[in-house]
Amino acid sequence: MRLDRLLLRAAAFLLLALSAGASEKLRVVTTLPDLADIVRQVGGARVDVNALVKGTENQHAVVAKPSMLIALSRADVFVQIGLSLESSWVPGLLENARNPRIAPGKPGFVNGSDGWPALDVPASLSRQGGDLHPHGNPHFNLSPRAGRHLAARILAALVANDPAGRSEYEAAHARYALALDAAEARWAKAAERLRGVAVATYHQEFDYLARECGLVIVGTVELKPGIPPTPAHVIGLVDAMRVRGARLVLTGAWSNTRQVAQVAEQAQGRVVELPHAVTNAQGSDTWIGMMDQIHTKLLEALDSLPRGP
């Protein structure tokens, strides 16, 4: 082959590679798999998304891995929950990844809790209130209303970072909104049976869920968020559960400890392990699926209790 032809081929190959690069998908990295699912729903084929943590993990204490650093250093868009949920691990990762596209304040940095009215925002900050929720309760991914809020935030972020995809994103968002309408109607129906049911939880992670479906939380096994229980606290909680007829103790996979089992046993009730984020498991691998599963498990748990006096 002659040299000029070889050069021509090389140039053509280069051009092809460059154009392939230009049409590359928007790289989105999220903290929770819940956010990744909603990005997938709204972003469709235009985005390539992955979540840094598994849905089974304790979201407050995540161990940084090299793949997280690399994913963040390559991302076009980063989506977090915020409200200090990820404060012990995300800032360090962002600082080391040093990706200007996703630096706080840039369009590629998306804080999912912006505009979300948080519960339990402390009036004054003190560690007397525990360690983990200094900006209010961050576990709003478990609110039945979170899907709608996050989908709107994510739509705005995707359009801002990839304006050419606006019509596709808006169409996908509209389809997702319809799915949410149907899902919210299912959850409202389930809530009719859950309203007024008294429960205890391990961590304050089901507060938004309880508010929406009318569950009454009589107390947490933890003394405060991030502070393990004292024996006196456990006795007080069991008393409160007995007095108010609470027989279900709600917990996530990360917090299903012996203490939770003890509390449930002493209160003559049972432990209900609920998904606290989207997982790889079938059924809870989308945010809507996870919320469906939570409501189903709650109703099953309610049905499994012996009828009280």
Binding site: K54, T56, E57, N58, V63, A253
Partner: peptide
Amino acid sequence: YGWADETNTRR
């Protein structure tokens, strides 16, 4: 070498 279980609790 570091290992963590899937809930990131046992390490």
